[in-house]
């Protein structure tokens, strides 16, 4: 009788173990599928960005160059300021196109990319930008760095669109194997539970999830918003092949 009960318990336990393993495998497969789907979505988004960047660089850039050329042929003295402004616009458009295009990012470190972007933003004179980098700089895989940069761009974009901030603080902290990036502002902030998650925040979350980064977004009305991102070099789950 005991042998019989023991056999049935053994069977139930073995089956249950197998069943749980099966559930785990299904969950893993779903995870991989989601990652692949996300990767494709973001690749499409990147491709669109690349196309836009090419369009801005080739078409709008060329038109502006033509305007500059026409202006330089006109000797009227009152146009010198306009010429300068057009030159500045051409420069800004070129920088913008480079920051949007993946090819322009692939051979630069995240540190350089963020620093360049900070300089570019500083020149707009809309905000005061405070950039700080701590620790010894190390490289992550190229795709992860591009994704980090896109997240950074999305955060800045959100700040520019919604925050009405005067100051933006960017902190990079290199502490092997961790790289943390903190982007905060002194804008109007929001109540996280009352705001419907927009495409920007969803995109930030998707990208962070894809590179296995920890993400924490905190905001308080009247105080500002802070985005904290942490990626582990030794635990990079995304490979851009």
């Amino acid at each position: 009788m005991f042998l019989l009960v023991g056999t049935i318990i053994f069977f139930v336990l073995s089956y249950q173990k197998r069943y749980l393993k099966h559930l785990h495998e299904i969950k893993e497969l779903e995870q991989v599928y989601k990652q692949e789907l996300l990767k494709s979505e973001l690749e499409i988004k990147d491709q669109t960005m690349n196309n836009l960047a090419s369009e801005i660089h080739d078409h709008i850039g060329q038109m502006l160059s033509l305007i500059k050329l026409n202006l330089s042929l006109n000797p009227a003295p009152g146009l010198s300021e306009t010429k300068e402004l057009v030159s500045q616009v051409i420069k800004d458009v070129r920088n913008l196109a480079h920051s949007m295009h993946t090819d322009g990012l692939s051979n630069k470190s995240i540190h350089t990319l963020i620093e360049t972007e900070a300089d570019r933003l500083r020149k707009t004179k809309h905000f005061a930008i405070y950039f700080e980098s701590k620790g010894k700089i190390f490289a992550l895989d190229n795709q992860t760095e591009i994704f980090l940069y896109r997240i950074f761009q999305e955060c800045i974009n959100n700040t520019m669109k919604h925050a009405h901030a005067k100051n933006i603080f960017i902190e990079l902290n290199y502490s092997l194997p961790l790289l943390s990036i903190k982007i905060s502002d002194d804008g109007q902030g929001f109540q996280s539970h009352s705001v419907e998650e927009g495409l920007g925040i969803r995109s930030i979350k998707h990208r962070a999830n894809l590179i296995g980064a920890k993400l924490h977004i905190s905001s308080e009305p009247g105080v500002g918003t802070s985005t904290y991102l942490e990626v582990d070099k030794s635990n990079q789950i995304f490979h851009g092949d």
Partner: peptide, 14 residues
Amino acid sequence: YFFQLLHYSNPQPL
């Protein structure tokens, strides 16, 4: 039958 259950490729809750 129980051995067959243990080898199911798509096990269901018992």
